[in-house]
Design a protein around this nucleic acid. Structure first.
Length: 961
RNA sequence: GCAGGGGUAGCAAAGCCUGGUCAAAUGCGCAGGGCUUAGGACCCUGUGGCCUAGCGCCUUCAUGGGUUCGAAUCCCAUCCCCUGCACCA
């Protein structure tokens, strides 16, 4: 089958009919007008072309959209582009800077030549280029998208919508201002995310404690992960080769200030989160001469040199707890001071004595503080003491390391004996510009307050009414709602919408994508208004009216136009959103924010034409999250170079094949795998089906139905019966397996078994074509057309995409037929097994002896009574069994041993006979023309009597000669 | 650390909720055979071990223990792996 020609052909047919541009309030003939279905997928971010991984969410959504359409729903599936934030700017900048790596990725992976790449230095040009590319790919994938509603998040009318949304949040008291720490590039004066760093490292912030020791002219802040060990401090460490400074630190709360000793590096990086002014430089030797006072008991502790102290980490000064920190103990040993300075035990841990650090170092044979094993010892001991260590002294006595740590930290910070500071846990991290990243305390930061308890409660309520697929993710949502606090919603730069309460700030990308599903419903109308009258035609009044049903009021109110009512109708028709789709990584942020924002904006009930609509009418109904796509079993990554661009894949394999493989090679929540073998497997199966279809259309199928054809249809309709529920719950993998793989296996079995005349596949193809149409819409149209007019089984429809989804013909489902076929298959296997054992290739004859009917009765009794005596009691009452008591007892004894294996139903003896009689010809052909005989136990010749006695229900005795 | 998910035959992956028909679907791979000028595609058979008559036996579903007439499935413990923990799309 030539996929490329069928794609373009059928896509043209759909476009011609404007098949995916639904009208609000109207619907296809076979549906009620109110029977709408509105679904959206997370819109793409056009800073590079899309690859095959991106297609999974969209294809899943499209399959659902197409299925719902066939179920008679009026379906809306819109699409837009998300261009908010910094990545697009960063990309344009990298191109402008001639970033070699980037040019190469574009060239090698995506086939974008450097001449083209270099024209993309303007962010808008970049967005336009990639969004066109992505949109083209989506067309080629056959997605049933209503493109009239397309927009970009930097469009003026959308900006107005977002500002309107933020004013709603503000009115509800959910926008707050404050400060917070962020990873920061001091050169760019910008927060840095993972994609802003060299090697795409995610900067990881971590809170640590800097304990303040009074010394010299001020304080020595020592950084520690383990403040609970503070009572065990015996000395402080200074790196003798580092440069130190004395700096004035202004306290956050009051006017008070304190001088601190720090390394120069620490001074520079910490001045982004503390208010620091340098007083003078201090040589390490000066510090080494000082005595520090322990903050808890004011006893002096010496300051000693140690090489393990990193000048760039924290403050460049650390406290020494030789009893519990292997590095400290080792450094003391290196200085030969262990005699003079005695470790002080703070935590008691089973298996250790008074100096766990020393004991562990000796056990592991750590040589000195520069030995790599010191790190291992530290990790081991920390883990152990955190859980099993018990604090020895009041007021923390008895607490384990973890509990004590948090408590002491809190106590110390509160009493100004320590500072809580943030560091980058995975330092050093470098910005793309080359500067080392630091932590910055950003002032005047705006937040959306997801920590608001009333809001959380409402969001939980909304979640409770939603369907979550896969259902297991519900607890992830609940957990996320629980821990979400204030979320920074602005940045100093980026594309998108200006923050309405501080126009120098831009709304960041996760905050302007929470309500746009509502915007889609009216996007085409708003765009028309903008085109005719400019964006001034759009205002808060307009959005208030459309989304909240509020009539414009006050001095500066806008005049309503006919479009307002049209937009309002459109919104009311499509909302609520019936299904929201994304990959599962967005559950923890986007999808949860999305629910939150709906409950905040749609907080009040509305009334429309006298009809009350509670606020929950507008809340989302369902989310569907899918896993990612791997490539030949491996994660796709730029560095591995194994990214398969979508359009390249389409060229190689064809749309429907990709649609099928990407969505059906794994359960919804698992990562699916795209691999060549699977894709080719699908292609060859489609070709096989095509050849069957051709034969069917060319030949004259027999008029009466054979046993095996009835078997085939029984199986097929049983599968078809499940298909609807599987589409609705996204069990695409089992569905795909049933519809393609299992069905083809059945088809082949049917063909092999039908040793007589031809096959009857007309009914099969009509139903099958429609059943797979959501997955493979182009193949479906092609098959549908090739079947021509005069369809005999499915309801008529000019094109497959708009046909009603077929329902199974339950009357054709017959479990006894399927049991009969299983019986034949089991016999085939048994005969083969025996032939193999006796090393015989071609039997002369095969004799099958079906059990005498009474055995079936015994089997049933055994399954029911599960006890020989009870079986025998029953048997005595049965005239047929009463005369056979010894045989019954023997059989019952045999059966009871394997009680578990006889729970299933088996054929009646007569049915076994019928099946065997009917299959004689087939069995003969399977075994090289052997003579086939079918007998009944009791009527078999005397010389076979012993064999015949072995016959059981479902297991005839087999005699091979 | 906290939260969630997972470990099944050469590989991938179903089964586990609702214990027995599970030596365990299916796909790939591999082996043999058919078809074919050849290759591919397609079809058939096999793919833990034993067995010259199957419907049987033995050992298997991370490891160890338990519940049960019966465990891949239920319970407990242990080991290992993956993902997320934000202000970023």
């Amino acid at each position: 089958m030539d996929f490329h020609s069928i794609h373009t052909k059928w896509q043209a047919h759909w476009n011609e009919r404007k098949a995916f541009e639904p009208k609000a309030g109207t619907a296809p003939a076979h549906a009620a007008a109110s029977d709408k279905f509105y679904l959206t997928a997370a819109f793409p971010y056009p800073n590079s072309p899309q690859h095959i991984g991106h297609s999974r969410t969209y294809t899943t959504t499209d399959i659902y959209a197409r299925y719902m359409r066939m179920k008679g729903k009026n379906v809306l599936f819109p699409m837009a582009f998300h261009v908010t934030g910094t990545p697009i700017l960063a990309m344009a900048k990298r191109i402008e800077a001639g970033d070699k790596e980037l040019f190469e990725i574009f060239d090698k992976i995506y086939g974008i030549k450097p001449e083209i790449t270099k024209t993309l230095t303007d962010p808008r040009a970049l967005v336009l280029f990639f969004s066109k590319e992505i949109e083209a790919g989506m067309h080629e994938m056959g997605y049933s998208i209503d493109w009239r509603r397309k927009f970009y998040t930097f469009d003026a009318v959308f900006n107005k919508f977002i500002q309107w949304q933020f004013r709603k949040l503000h009115e509800a008291g959910l926008i707050v201002k404050g400060s917070h720490p962020v990873p920061w590039c001091p050169a760019d004066k910008q927060p840095v995310g993972g994609h802003d760093t060299r090697g795409d490292v995610d900067p990881q912030m971590e809170e640590v404690t800097a304990v303040l020791f009074e010394a010299g002219e001020g304080f020595i802040p020592t950084i520690t992960y383990r403040p609970e060990t503070l009572p065990g401090v015996t000395n402080l460490w200074v790196n003798p080769d580092a440069k130190y400074v004395l700096a004035e630190m202004k306290e956050k709360d009051g006017q008070k200030s304190r001088p601190l000793y720090l390394t120069l590096e620490a001074f520079e990086s910490l001045s982004h989160q503390l208010s620091l002014t340098k007083i003078r430089e201090v040589p390490a030797s000066e510090l080494l001469g000082l005595k520090a006072l322990h903050p808890l008991n004011h006893q002096p502790v010496p300051i000693l040199p140690a090489s393990f102290v990193e000048p760039g980490t924290g403050t460049g000064l650390v406290m020494s707890v030789p009893a519990h920190a292997p590095y400290d103990w080792l450094a003391l040993r290196d200085l030969n001071k262990l005699g003079e300075i005695k470790p002080i035990q703070v935590l008691d841990t089973p298996g250790f004595g008074a100096c766990p650090a020393g004991e562990l170092c000796e056990k592991l044979g750590v040589k000195n503080q520069d030995d790599a094993k010191a790190e291992e010892a530290t990790k081991q001991l920390y883990k152990l003491e955190a859980h099993e260590g018990k604090m020895k002294n009041a007021p923390y006595a008895g607490m384990n390391g973890i509990a004590a740590k948090d408590k002491i930290k809190e106590d110390l910070v509160r009493s100004h004996l320590a500072l809580a500071i943030h560091i980058l846990a995975n330092a050093p991290v470098f910005c793309r510009c080359g500067a080392g990243c630091v932590v910055k305390q950003v002032e005047n930061q705006w937040f959306i307050n997801y920590g608001d308890e009333t809001w959380k409660a409402k969001t939980r309520e909304a979640l409770g009414q939603m369907r979550i697929l896969p259902e297991g993710l519900r607890q992830d949502y609940e957990y996320t709602i629980g821990w979400l606090q204030k979320k920074a919603c602005t940045r100093a730069s980026g594309l998108g919408t200006k923050f309405p309460f501080d126009e120098k700030q831009m709304i960041e990308a996760l905050s302007d994508s929470t309500l746009y599903m509502a915007f889609y419903t009216i996007a085409h109308i708003v765009k028309k208004m903008e085109k005719e009258r400019g964006d001034a035609a759009i205002s808060d009044d307009f959005y208030d009216f459309v989304f909240l049903g509020k009539e414009p009021a006050g001095e500066k109110r806008m005049k309503k136009t006919a479009e307002w009512d049209e937009a309002r109708r459109e919104f009311l028709y499509w909302y609520p959103l019936d299904s929201r789709h994304s990959a599962h990584d967005l559950v923890h942020n986007h999808l949860t924010f999305f629910v939150f924002n709906h409950t905040a904006v749609f907080a009040q009930p509305q009334t429309e034409a006298g009809e009350p609509r509670p606020s929950s009418t507008f809340w989302p109904r369902q989310t569907v999250s899918n896993g990612f796509v791997t490539m030949e079993g491996k994660k796709m990554s730029k560095s591995m170079g194994n990214i398969l661009p979508l359009r390249k894949a389409i060229g190689e394999y064809g749309t429907d094949v990709i649609r099928f493989v990407v969505t059906s090679s794994a359960e919804l929540e698992a990562d699916s795998d795209f691999n060549q073998a699977a894709a080719e497997g699908v292609i060859s199966r489609l070709n096989l089906l095509e050849s069957y279809l051709e034969r069917e259309m060319a030949g004259k199928p027999p008029s009466s139905r054979s046993r095996i054809s009835r078997w085939f249809y029984s199986r097929f309709h049983a599968r078809l019966r499940e298909a609807g529920a599987q589409y609705e719950t996204f069990q695409l993998r089992p569905l795909a397996k049933a519809l393609l793989y299992d069905t083809i296996n059945d088809l082949q079995w049917y063909a092999r078994r039908e040793s007589g005349g031809g096959l009857q596949l007309r009914e099969f193809f009509e139903f099958w074509t429609l059943a797979v149409a959501p997955f493979m819409p182009h193949v479906a149209e092609e098959f549908w057309q090739r079947m021509g007019e005069g369809r005999k089984y499915a309801k008529p429809s000019p094109l497959a995409f708009s046909a009603p989804f077929p329902s199974a013909d339950s009357a054709q489902i017959d479990p006894r037929l399927e049991m009969g076929e299983q019986y034949v298959q089991a016999i085939l296997e048994d005969v083969r097994h025996i032939l193999q054992l006796i090393k015989k290739d071609k039997p002369q004859s095969l004799t099958f002896i079906v059990h005498a009917g009474w055995k079936k009765k015994v089997r049933r009794l055994v399954a029911e009574k599960k006890n020989i005596r009870a079986v025998m009691d029953e048997a005595k009452k049965d005239p047929e069994l009463a005369v056979l008591q010894p045989q019954v007892a023997q059989l019952a004894g045999k059966l009871i041993k394997n009680i578990g294996s006889i729970t299933g139903e088996t054929l009646e003896a007569q049915e076994e006979l019928d099946v065997l009689q009917d299959s004689k010809e087939f069995l003969a052909s399977e075994f090289g023309g052997a003579n086939i005989e079918v007998l009944v136990e009791g009527k078999a010749p005397a010389e076979l009597a012993a064999k015949a006695a072995n016959a059981l229900p479902g297991k005839p005795s087999i005699v091979i000669a």
